[in-house]
Amino acid sequence: MTSTPEASLRRHTKAGMFMHWFNAACWLFLLCTGLGLIDNPELRPFGPGYPAALRGLFGGGGNLLLAHWLAALLWLAVWAGFIVFYLTRHVIPFLRQVAAIQVRRDLEWMLKKQIQMMLGYRLMAVLVKPLGWDGSLPEQEYYNAGQKLAAQGIIAGALVLVATGLLMLASKYLLGPGWASLVQWSITIHYLAALFTTVLLLVHVYMAAISREERPAFISMFTGKVPADYAKHHHKLWYDQAAGGDA
């Protein structure tokens, strides 16, 4: 079966696409307001101007904190709803796909993909051909190895952010002084977890929005569909399953 250029496969549902963009908006807002909440002479990742400007914009540090909390609670509530309503349709299949690591194949993919990204296809063809590698990557499923690892990292980061964030929220409205040490660790870990997920999201944003090769994947987050050609090349195992089932 050869696919025509117009042939496409459905990759995302409407609910999935909504969650993606809702998530993106929330993370961006929470990252910006969260960084503005850090204001200490010895820290200030962006100097004193950034927290001051943001506090001016929101009408004081207290309001900035409130906006951060309300956005976080909205994000959490929508996620809770999504998880409940789409547990079998989305959440469990997603987690299965994300967890489906095959060590040998995925390690090889990660290694070769890095070399390919660094050298580019043309240079790589010249350099690695003599070593007996034709430049192709191991076939991948619905998610490739990089996507799976990034997803696992972001899920772990999100869980840590939620736990530490709730502890800080509780400190103001619920907890007694006995929790001080845990709350203090929460502050530090919340910041570190936010930076950790930011690292993964930088790679994600590069891959999706900047890299030309992945442009069809970016567009699919609006249309829900990817060209069959793209699926065949990037997610062969998923393509065989999806297209094979349709044909």
């Binding site: 909440l37 850090i38 204001d39 200490n40 820290l43 927290p51 004081g60 540090g61 207290g62 309001n63 900035l64 904190l65 409130l66 800080m168 929220l169 400190s171 103001k172 907890l175 709350v183 502050i187």
Partner: peptide, 23 residues
């Protein structure tokens, strides 16, 4: 971490922003 405790520039008094402080 947040500047909820700060030194007032106009008179040098160390103040606490109760809205921003999470205790």
């Amino acid at each position: 971490p947040t500047g909820a405790t700060y030194k007032e520039a106009k008179d040098g008094v160390v103040r606490i922003d109760r809205e921003l402080c999470i205790g």
